[in-house]
Amino acid sequence: MKNTRNLILIVEDDEKLRQTLEDFLTANHFAVLTAVDGEQALTLYYANNHLIDLILLDGMLPGMDGFEVLKTIRQYSDVPIIMLTARESEEDQLTGLTNGADNYITKPFRLRVLKAHMDVLLKRNNRAAAGEIEAGKLRLEQASQRAFADEVPLNLTPKEFALLLYFVQNRDLVLTREVILDAVWGFDYQGDIRTVDTLVKQLRKKLPDSCPYIQSIYGVGYRFEVTDHE
Results as ranks from 00 to 15, higher is better:
residue 129 A to C: 09
residue 97 L to F: 10
residue 26 T to V: 06
residue 202 Q to H: 10
residue 191 G to L: 09
residue 150 D to F: 05
residue 143 A to M: 11
residue 174 V to D: 06
residue 203 L to R: 01
residue 206 K to L: 04
residue 108 P to M: 05
residue 96 G to E: 03
residue 92 D to W: 05
residue 125 N to A: 15
residue 2 K to S: 12
residue 94 L to C: 10
residue 118 M to E: 02
residue 26 T to F: 02
residue 13 D to T: 05
residue 184 V to L: 04
residue 3 N to F: 07
residue 210 S to F: 04
residue 25 L to I: 07
residue 185 W to G: 00
residue 87 R to I: 09
residue 8 I to S: 04
residue 189 Y to L: 02
residue 198 T to M: 07
residue 200 V to A: 10
residue 144 S to N: 09
residue 122 L to W: 15
residue 98 T to M: 09
residue 4 T to I: 09
residue 203 L to T: 00
residue 95 T to R: 14
residue 16 K to Q: 07
residue 94 L to N: 11
residue 68 E to G: 05
residue 215 Q to Y: 09
residue 31 A to T: 13
residue 17 L to I: 11
residue 227 T to I: 11
residue 66 G to T: 01
residue 87 R to M: 15
residue 66 G to P: 01
residue 207 L to H: 06
residue 208 P to R: 06
residue 35 A to E: 00
residue 135 A to P: 02
residue 195 T to Q: 15
residue 193 I to C: 01
residue 149 A to N: 06
residue 112 R to D: 13
residue 138 L to C: 03
residue 227 T to K: 14
residue 42 L to G: 00
residue 49 N to C: 14
residue 100 G to Q: 13
residue 106 T to Y: 08
residue 216 S to G: 07
residue 8 I to G: 03
residue 23 D to A: 10
residue 161 F to E: 00
residue 83 M to Q: 06
residue 153 P to F: 03
residue 106 T to I: 02
residue 148 F to L: 14
residue 110 R to D: 08
residue 4 T to Q: 13
residue 203 L to E: 00
residue 58 D to R: 03
residue 185 W to R: 04
residue 139 R to H: 01
residue 22 E to S: 12
residue 35 A to F: 03
residue 63 G to D: 13
residue 208 P to E: 01
residue 112 R to E: 13
residue 103 N to E: 13
residue 55 I to H: 03
residue 102 D to C: 08
